[in-house]
Amino acid sequence: MRKVTIFMIPLTMFVVLSIFLYKGLYSDPRQLDSSLINQPLPPFSLPDLMQPEVTHTPDVFKGDVTLMNVWGVWCVTCAVELPYLTQLREEQGVRIVGLYYDQDTDPDFGIKSIPTIQKEVEVKLGQLGNPYAFNIFDVKRDYSLDLGVTGAPETFLIDKQGVVRMHHIGDINPRVWNNKIAPLYNQLVAE
């Protein structure tokens, strides 16, 4: 009997370790829980990308359920999701607001001028479809940092009170929309 227990110890340790490591195989290290969930959007005051004289604040999210999509023309995956986002806007009337930031605009030097960026955006949206109600221009990428954005594309689902309800890292495709975002989106719209 004693012998059996002694042999059981390494066996159980092995089994526990195996389960732990096996689960690790399928865990996605990029799946980070955003610390913003169920928090109101951090305050901001940023210009519109196309009309820089217009200033946006978190008030633009009050009253509508909105997808805030972080993107840029330099981002390959963003180009992939643009047609589908456009489809969501046209077929389901989803309100999508862009948070645009540029890679080449060094906050300290500013290599690219705003007209150049506007031109690039117009061309890109002309080719692939324009899902955006409007674009907020995160000039110095400070706001992306406040939101905990790690890259592009990333999307925030924001409810009618301007509270962040979901943070999705990566592109939005039919699978992600139907399985992950749409259930909560529909629930928020119905509220």
Partner: peptide, 8 residues
Amino acid sequence: MKARYGDF
């Protein structure tokens, strides 16, 4: 940093 990107 933790407030924005978590303990990670």
